[in-house]
Design a protein around this nucleic acid. Sequence first.
DNA 1: GTCTATATGAAGATAGAC
DNA 2: GTCTATCTTCATATAGAC
Lengths: 197, 197
Amino acid sequence: MADKSEKVRRQIIETANRLFYHKGYNQTSFSDIADAAHVPRGNFYYYFKAKDDILRAVIAQRVGDIRGMLAEWDENIGTPVLRLQRFVEMLRNEQQDLVRYGCPMGSLNTELGKAQPALKREARAMFDLYRGWLARQFEVLGFQEQAESLAVELLSRAQGIAVMSQVYGDKAILAQQTVQLDAWIGELVERSEDRRA
Amino acid sequence: MADKSEKVRRQIIETANRLFYHKGYNQTSFSDIADAAHVPRGNFYYYFKAKDDILRAVIAQRVGDIRGMLAEWDENIGTPVLRLQRFVEMLRNEQQDLVRYGCPMGSLNTELGKAQPALKREARAMFDLYRGWLARQFEVLGFQEQAESLAVELLSRAQGIAVMSQVYGDKAILAQQTVQLDAWIGELVERSEDRRA
DNA sequence: GTCTATATGAAGATAGAC
DNA sequence: GTCTATCTTCATATAGAC
């Protein structure tokens, strides 16, 4: 039954995704995932033969989710400025999780970067998506050569906000710093309008 | 021989400090530390009876180091602007390690924040030191009520730069983004001078 | 395809000889 | 104070019955 099998597989990936985020990849055991996904320990190896296979599947799913979300933003949000603001809004929407567990991509990369370079390289794909998408928004705004570095700057600031909010477990930090980020985008837009005028 | 004992203890802390940074706290085993510090496994428990005791000792040492460094900056650097710039310069000085392992305080807090709240709270002490010191510099610059939030913003941006540089293993990102950070400090100083004029 | 039972190894931790 | 031997627990992983 490929149907049932696929369903269990998806269930495992979903559970692993949550646990990797909440507990960290290395701190999550096979049994943790099996128990939480209600799959008997032994049966587990029928679906994934090693732990990094699960991680790869989790990353693939996250990449798909991000891709879908960005495509949806492209379709439904009319201007690059609104799209950048939507990006910042995402931080506010996720505040509860961000304050507890940090950024799902950032914390995973930080962890894997220490001693698992191969897996880290795969996890980086999530950053590549945002980085490219943000750069395109800045290009449309008229920042030709700077678009790439502005994308990195915005991602970097978002990561910093996630780290500091988690360090202090403080929603107020997140709220306050995202206001600064919105202001920064606002100033950039003014500059881009000056340039066109 | 308390002398010998103290020396071995310091040796263990120094080794653990390095390994926790390079491999992560949870991914570093007792044996890793014992082997690297050339202390027989069994003898280890004479010095530290549990792993979190080692972490506490490591944090205490790092806190001491930071405190000493900031005191030295206070003594030898004449103005708050130069001190803030010195803080940013630190990122550049540590570029090789930052790009490989991320920020020692940031990555430790990110890791412990996932599922070790008690230890995380202790690790936060490192952030408190910088946060307080940075806020004092902004106060001297005339940013009374904003001093605290500016300190968090600067720390936050530094953390973001560390994360992004590590994600991409890229010194150029670190170089480019610290230039932005210097520029930001420059603009703030101008504003503070306008205010006084 | 599903599950039980179990092998194997590493990690944290202790007892107790010297 | 120093070190060997060893215990327990838990992790990854496999064999093989159903």
